[in-house]
Design a protein around this nucleic acid. Structure first.
Ligand SMILES: [Mn+2]
Ligand SMILES: [Mn+2]
Ligand SMILES: [Mn+2]
Ligand SMILES: [Mn+2]
Lengths: 220, 220
DNA sequence: TAATATTTTTAGATGAATCTAAAAATATGT
DNA sequence: ACATATTTTTAGATTCATCTAAAAATATTA
């Protein structure tokens, strides 16, 4: 597989939200910053190789093999992100671009040894799960902070927007993955929230809340 | 710069032995397992970019910029090799192929942080020096073990042949970089040697001796 | 030096990944 | 439903890195 094919497979995977949903040519083109005509060409090639199911004018979805392939690339991407943050001291908003390159290095031994070196992490610095070698990972049941009820308690497990500006905002405001969060109050008018984060009370806008994922505490 | 351009620059660097020697088209083709006609094409392009000096039918040499570029790629290659051996527990004969890919990752921050993470090593697992960020490294004054006089003492600082079979042979025979070596006796007929290595006496063939570099102890 | 051998370059082709412009299919709105 | 808008595909071109085959330059050797 070429680097380009891998990036397309990954884009289709992400646009399909991990399921094998039908994805449109235009959506792929936008995601990859290319032209729809280029996407059509590539999608035909991937279809011939059996990595995607493609019906013209209808859309494209990952095949079984395509899905496995996507998971292996995602695994590499996220393991490298952990490495960059944990071992090389990168900030979590700086790792994406480099991981985008490192994910294409071809060596099974390398990724196995990297995994071991990192202590077999199960989530990346942005809270996203790392698929196992066999392509499995447990789906975290998470909700957007903006959509949970008052009094809900949970743990911050991920971000929806993982752009540098948003991640930097979180750093400045000392909001991090694995922080305990409790919703204290909700303003109906603008959807802003009063929350308690690691014991500290803060007020956050709806825009922030709708980009933070919470794993809700099991309340029996 | 493309990956391919980088590999050509590095090949020219190695064939020119680090000096800016004239290198032939055929030599490059052999080194890179390509055809001479492909080399001519690439060399023209590199020449237009100012990375090499090229006169047709005469040969090619690195320009000042080309040399800097080569050193930066060699630096990356060797730092990654150290990482693979020191941190990921690869054997020294397994790292080359992966480093060949990793050397092309584009990120200055990455290589600086990797360097720091490794404790600013100055040699790679094969004893080869790692150029500084500025492209400088001290040339180790080294001689082939097969060419030193009897009674010479020194430290094993490198291998000429860095193929897996030779490196595995050294492992099996417990000969490693930085081992202290003393030449005890030399057989005129076949050039084989009796040496003392870390206090242990061993007999080695001329073929082995002519692939090991020794840094000679300063004897005042 | 002149014939021969080797090296190097040129000419022309291929496959990958991309683009623009135009055509075809599908979707939307009144 | 039909005119219009949007999406998707096709056709044809470009750039990069490679190849084969043939021509040109250089080196060897008798
Ligand atoms: Mn990528
Ligand atoms: Mn991530
Ligand atoms: Mn390389
Ligand atoms: Mn090396």
């Amino acid at each position: 597989m070429t680097l380009s094919e891998e990036d397309y497979i990954k884009a289709i995977y992400h646009l399909g939200k991990g399921e094998k949903t039908l994805v449109s040519t235009n959506a792929i083109a936008e995601q990859m910053s290319t032209k729809p005509s280029s996407v059509t060409d590539m999608v035909k090639k991937l279809s011939e190789k059996g990595l995607v199911n493609y019906r013209r004018y209808k859309g494209v979805s990952l095949s079984e093999i395509g899905n496995k392939t996507a998971l292996s690339i995602v695994r590499k991407h996220r393991l490298w992100e952990v490495f960059l943050v944990e071992k090389l001291d990168f900030a979590w908003d700086e790792v994406h671009e480099v991981a985008e390159q490192l994910e294409h290095i071809k060596s099974d031994a390398l990724i196995d040894k990297l995994d071991a070196h990192l202590g077999f992490p199960r989530v990346d610095p942005h809270g996203d799960p790392i698929p196992s070698k066999e392509g499995e990972f447990k789906k975290v049941i998470k909700k957007l902070l903006s959509e949970v009820d008052i009094k809900t308690e949970g743990i911050c497990v991920g971000v929806k927007d993982s752009s540098a500006p948003f991640l930097k905002f979180l750093d400045r405001n000392k909001i991090a993955i694995r922080d305990a969060i409790k919703v204290l109050d909700k303003e109906e008018f603008d959807g802003s929230l009063d929350i308690e984060i690691n014991g500290r009370k803060v007020h956050i806008s709806n825009q922030i809340a709708s980009n933070l994922y919470l794993e809700i505490k099991e309340v029996e």
